[in-house]
Design a protein around this nucleic acid. Structure first.
Length: 415
RNA sequence: GUGGGUAUCGUCAAGUGGUCAAGACCCAGGGUUGUGGCUCCUGUAUACGUGGGUUCGACUCCCACUACCCACCCCA
């Protein structure tokens, strides 16, 4: 009986890991250019953190968390990245440092969901957060970083959608208005939406059911009921995006699934990777830090799905440079020259070259074949003849040329 | 939780109710007793998802199950 990988998880194999390295390095560079520093938090946190942060009534907390009990503690594998960063920020009193605080991270996330294209139970995301400012310049910077990063990878066919979901004050007002509008139609809505009516009527707008879509087509939108402050903030955001020359569309249907969002909500979506089209999603959360027990501090950030990003890269046919696996293969013939071959291999490695050598005791023919499969640019051949003459044979694998040179001439020849 | 699709060597992929099964790639070795990529030859492998049933006989027919994929939902 073979033990298989748990459902919803994926191995990242040597043949594809270079793609991950590529997007990861690029993300680090991009964040550095915007003045963000990396923060690393544990794989799991106290369950309570997510209940408070993400929200007790959300799907994530209600049915998707990997929670386990150990030594009387309830712990949970992180289902998202923001709450842990907030926890670390508070716990380490990072609010004593110069504001704003700017962090980025690269994490695995865990949610117990049904598998689908672009959706796994362990998935990975890049994220950034800015704490300490309510100014919409921060929101614009967060979005700018995301767009900048993606276009830097060569992706140019994604669309940015923005919305404002208001603050607790105007949202309460709006919910009333929405409920009044929907009340007469309540009995035609789908079952899940009937449930949502009291708990979170805004989600009804997000329902894909044709009946609900039709019923809500002319429903009032949050955007029309923003309080003065939220309205001004949204206009600021739009001005800032325009100043940054970032095209966007207003999508009044965007409703974030995590409770902590306020005001700005945005998504960057692709129409080429299937139903799970949101590559990057984020927004503002002005009360989260306070709710988790920190000083009242506004924040804004995003999460960017790495698997989905890779799907987009595939769909766009973007070629990711594959690192050269091998510069020089050192082939040995017989036992006598072995010691010298090993020395050559080690000194070339010290000099920074990628060196492969035979560890299977193969024939010269087989060694050369392996060198070829390994895409070695050169093969150094050392046998009895070379040993006696005090030289090595250097074979240029691409040109199929070969000559005898002194050992100390190798580095000059292969550059 | 609800639908739909798929299931043959490591990978891709033929196949018919009746020699338990092509072929290709990959991997390994050889054709040249010290030389790769092309070519030729040879070799390795627990391959018909699992369990039932129909049948003289099933990989091929039926049923169930499981796994994977896709969609709903939700989100990254």
């Amino acid at each position: 009986m073979v033990i298989s990988i748990p459902k919803g998880t994926k191995d990242i194999l040597p043949s594809e890991v270079y793609r991950w390295h590529w997007v990861e390095e690029s993300f680090r560079d991009c964040c550095a250019r915007y003045g963000f520093s990396e923060i690393r938090t544990p794989l799991f946190e106290h369950t309570e953190l997510f209940k408070r942060g993400v929200g007790d009534t959300t799907d994530i907390v209600q049915k998707e968390m990997y929670t386990f009990e150990l030594a009387g503690r309830s712990l949970t594998l992180k289902p998202e990245g923001t709450s842990p960063v907030v926890r670390a920020y508070i716990e380490n009193k990072l609010y004593a440092e110069p504001m704003p605080a700017k962090y980025y991270y690269n994490i695995p996330c865990f949610r117990y969901e049904k598998m689908q294209k672009g959706r796994q139970r362990q998935f990975h995301q890049f994220g950034i957060e800015i704490f300490g400012t309510e100014n919409m310049m921060a929101d614009a910077e967060v979005i700018a970083l995301a767009m900048d990063y993606l276009s830097g990878l060569g992706i140019d066919d994604l669309s940015l959608r923005i919305n404002s979901i208001g603050c607790p004050a105007c949202r309460t007002e709006y919910k009333k208005v929405l409920q009044e509008y929907l009340a007469p139609k309540l009995d035609i809505l789908c079952d899940t939406c009937k449930d949502r009516f009291d708990r979170n009527p805004m989600r009804i707008l997000d329902c894909k059911s044709p009946v609900c879509k039709e019923a809500t087509r002319d429903a009032p939108r949050m955007i029309g009921y923003l309080c003065a402050e939220c309205k001004e903030a949204f206009e600021d955001l739009r001005d800032n995006l325009t100043a940054l020359s970032i095209p966007y569309t207003i999508d009044t249907d965007i409703v974030r699934g995590l409770d902590y969002y306020t005001k700005t909500a945005f998504e960057i979506v692709s129409d080429k990777i299937g139903a799970q089209s949101t590559v990057c999603g984020g927004g503002r959360y002005d009360h989260l830090i306070e709710e988790i027990g920190g000083p009242p501090t506004p924040g804004v950030g995003f999460g960017l799905g790495i698997e989905r990003l890779l799907l987009v890269l595939d769909a766009a046919g973007i070629r990711i440079p594959k690192p050269e696996p091998c510069d020089v293969f050192i082939a040995v013939l017989g036992n006598e020259p072995r010691a010298q071959a090993l020395q050559i291999a080690q000194s070339l490695r010290s000099a920074g070259y990628k060196i492969l050598t035979d560890v299977m005791g193969r024939t010269l023919k087989a060694q050369l074949k392996y060198a070829d499969r390994s895409e070695a640019s050169y093969t150094v051949i050392i046998g009895e003849d070379e040993l006696q003459k005090g030289v090595v044979s250097l074979r240029n694998m691409k040109q199929s040329t070969q000559k005898e040179i002194k050992i100390d001439e190798i580095t000059a020849e292969i550059r």
